[in-house]
Nucleic acid binder design. Sequence first.
DNA 1: TTTT
DNA 2: TTTT
Lengths: 142, 142, 142, 142
Amino acid sequence: MSVNKVILVGNVGRDPEIRHLDKGVAVARFSLATTENYTSKTGEKVSNTEWHNVVAWRGLAEVVEKYVKKGSQLYIEGRLRTRDYDKDGVKHYATEINADTMQLLGRREGQTETVGQPMQTESVQSVNEPDFSQPEEDDLPF
Amino acid sequence: MSVNKVILVGNVGRDPEIRHLDKGVAVARFSLATTENYTSKTGEKVSNTEWHNVVAWRGLAEVVEKYVKKGSQLYIEGRLRTRDYDKDGVKHYATEINADTMQLLGRREGQTETVGQPMQTESVQSVNEPDFSQPEEDDLPF
Amino acid sequence: MSVNKVILVGNVGRDPEIRHLDKGVAVARFSLATTENYTSKTGEKVSNTEWHNVVAWRGLAEVVEKYVKKGSQLYIEGRLRTRDYDKDGVKHYATEINADTMQLLGRREGQTETVGQPMQTESVQSVNEPDFSQPEEDDLPF
Amino acid sequence: MSVNKVILVGNVGRDPEIRHLDKGVAVARFSLATTENYTSKTGEKVSNTEWHNVVAWRGLAEVVEKYVKKGSQLYIEGRLRTRDYDKDGVKHYATEINADTMQLLGRREGQTETVGQPMQTESVQSVNEPDFSQPEEDDLPF
DNA sequence: TTTT
DNA sequence: TTTT
């Protein structure tokens, strides 16, 4: 009965930190910047950058490890999660984005790496030339 | 390298149609109405309703069968898909929303049914879903 | 070149707090709960509730003041924003959701109030909003 | 009481068509491809491309005219709208995405164009080079 | 065809 | 602190 969804497109601030927990579970953490630019009422150009703490687990963490680095432009879909922790006896809260899906955006031509993961996309061929030859299921309208 | 996502909150127009394909795969289809209300530049109140063709498969279709009926208010997350079909020798196109997740909203007090499903459906989401049962790494903040 | 978007459907924990700043600007704040239910690998039913700090400004704050109360089910679309503040000489961070649009969901039959607002709020959306009153170009298909 | 939202990240199939209606209102139309790649149960790699008919109005259409061309990678947020039209005496339906916001993604270094529009974003500087000179918070985790 |  |  509820929805908790975050959608971000931004750039990674530093190379991700990867940790491998017991049982081989991988966790990746990185900061993602989103910048909002607008003109204020007084006519000034304002630029406001938010830094988001992103966490990815397991297979997605491994994709992060292989393909994400400082400067990468990413599409992230995830969930908000706020944790509390103690620091010098004071309770603090930290909100992070638990990533569910990720897309690497705007890879440059020079880049040869390929995402060999069941993430979403690949065949560049189809980007501008869809395969219309695919037979549609049947002939029934909705 | 791409995202195809639809998010709808609306009301179901008629009781869903359910079909059971070979091998026990269930498919549910229904129309969902979203209504946009606004005031035009000339000051008139305008109401515009869109009808969306929603399709759900497998486990999600079964949830639809059990809990969705005419008038239900739903949150739907899915993907756009356009099919072509032949009708009287003329090619037509139909765009539908392939549902990935669903939430029943605003159930009224008289209703006693309960959705006993995690309702994350169609595998896509759960693929990258972290294992919440895992112990959090340690006691470090972030 | 970036996207910072949050979509929530949840319930309001307490009646919102409304403040009227100088110049008549209204600000509303409230907590919204989202609950995730799932079954762990060990077969246990787990329920995890997140509390989100939502902030609404101006016209949207006034809608909140009129129609939102403890228990209300809401759809919220907004942006993440993390602020830092000092508490007893210690720096803390707080992440909040700056609401851009809101929908009251699942109002029950007994409720007679009606939201008499277009509720698109905070200008952002309406900036790029097409003029629906315009005649559609012609009768040509795409 | 409803939400009708589409979020797409994809590539433009051909240079957009721009029309200027009476009163100087601009309309831009283009097709956007999203491709879904997955491995079927039988182990085959499957690639499915969807083509989305996107329409932008007014200021957003002018941004399209200036900066979008065949191959552009875009983030689009909009609403679904289905229109009917007559063709040879037969009623057809066409579903399009009415764009509300747009982001140009992954522009390469060689590209010098700059988005000079009050859309959302501005500082091109941050497109491929977010402002890493920002002091990372401090000694906080993450 | 829904809903408010 | 909500809700189912």
